[in-house]
Structure formats: structure tokens, C-alpha cells
């Protein structure tokens, strides 16, 4: 249960479109999908504590592009001002869940 990928599976039984708000598992799964291409090597596992800009091979522009994909997936907008305060995968998931709850 240590990897974010594992968490996904448990919550993946109901399509997102049928639920008003995404679950944490769905958000983590989507983040992992988006970040997959930026893993430093094939053995690297993306976890909640993974620091996006440090642990992965991703530049600041690619982070913003990835966030734009997540925004559209979960129908939220993450202000650029907030992005500066997001460091880990967990923090990114928290932000998306918090914004989705306000919808």
C-alpha cells in the first residue's frame, strides 16, 4: 500500500463521471499517470511524498502544463499563485480535492 498506484485500484470501480467529487485515489492515480513520463528512471516509484520539481525530471513549464491537464480532468482551476506552494504529490492531490469540494 505504499505506492500511490496501489491506492488507485481500490477506488477505481465507479467511473468518475458518475460521482460529484473525485476520491483521493482517483486524483492520485491521475497525477501518477501525468507524471509517469517524468520519472528519473524506470525503477522510480511515485509516492505521496515525492517532491515534484526535485525528485522528477520535470521543468517548471512542464509542471504547469501537467497541472492544466489535471485541472480539466477534475474541472477545477489551480491558480498559478497556489502552484508555487505545492511541492509534493500529496500536496497537489490535497489542493485538487479541496478545490473540487468547493464546486
Amino acid at each position: 500500500m505504499s505506492t500511490a498506484q496501489n491506492v488507485i485500484v481500490e477506488n477505481d470501480d465507479v467511473p468518475l463521471s458518475l460521482r460529484r467529487h473525485p476520491t483521493r485515489g482517483e486524483v492520485m492515480a491521475e497525477i501518477c499517470t501525468q507524471l509517469d513520463a517524468f520519472r528519473s528512471d524506470d525503477a522510480q516509484v511515485i509516492r505521496g511524498a515525492t517532491v515534484i520539481s526535485k525528485d522528477l525530471s520535470i521543468d517548471s513549464l512542464a509542471v504547469m502544463d501537467m497541472i492544466m491537464e489535471l485541472e480539466d480532468r477534475f474541472d477545477v482551476s489551480i491558480p498559478m499563485n497556489t502552484v508555487a506552494e505545492i511541492h509534493t504529490v500529496d500536496e497537489l492531490a490535497d489542493t485538487i480535492l479541496k478545490l473540487a469540494a468547493r464546486r
Binding site: M64, M68, E71, S77, P79, M80, N81, R103
Partner: peptide, 19 residues
């Protein structure tokens, strides 16, 4: 508050204004 939309994509802007 700054929000970024997809390049040359009016639908992407529309979604962000709606949100």
C-alpha cells in the same frame, strides 16, 4: 489570482472562466 489556459484554445478559457 492567476489562471493559465491552453494555448489558442477558447474552450479552455471558457472552462476556466466558468469555474
Amino acid at each position: 489570482e492567476v489562471v493559465r489556459f491552453k494555448h489558442n484554445d477558447p474552450a479552455s478559457l471558457d472552462a476556466r472562466l466558468r469555474r
